[in-house]
Amino acid sequence: MASLARLTYSEEETARLAADLEAILDYVETLGEVNTEGVRPMEHVLPLETPLREDRAVAAMAPDRAVANAPVAKGFAFVVPKVIDGEEEG
């Protein structure tokens, strides 16, 4: 699970986290009491349809601004450690 979220935990941290999560998950088990048969999941509180934007392009960001916050950039590209073929791809 930690690796899915790209987080690392030491052994000691793992134990504490596991205890915390267990307590929380125990607590949320109470939802099991609720009869939700036939209830539509409410992902949105708004009774709206998604609005549509006209297909008009705006000017692109100045490229130096686009990479201004980058920890590492070269030219106008973001730079990351070498990606090994197939590594973690979606």
């Binding site: 008009r56 705006v58 692109a60 960001m61 490229p63 686009a66 106008f76």
Partner: peptide
Amino acid sequence: RTDSKLFSPAPVSFGREPNHSVHPICL
């Protein structure tokens, strides 16, 4: 075939230099 991206108004382009066709949404 659109002029702008699916969820961002950044222009759709081909063959431009890196990060020359982006908007805060694309980043």
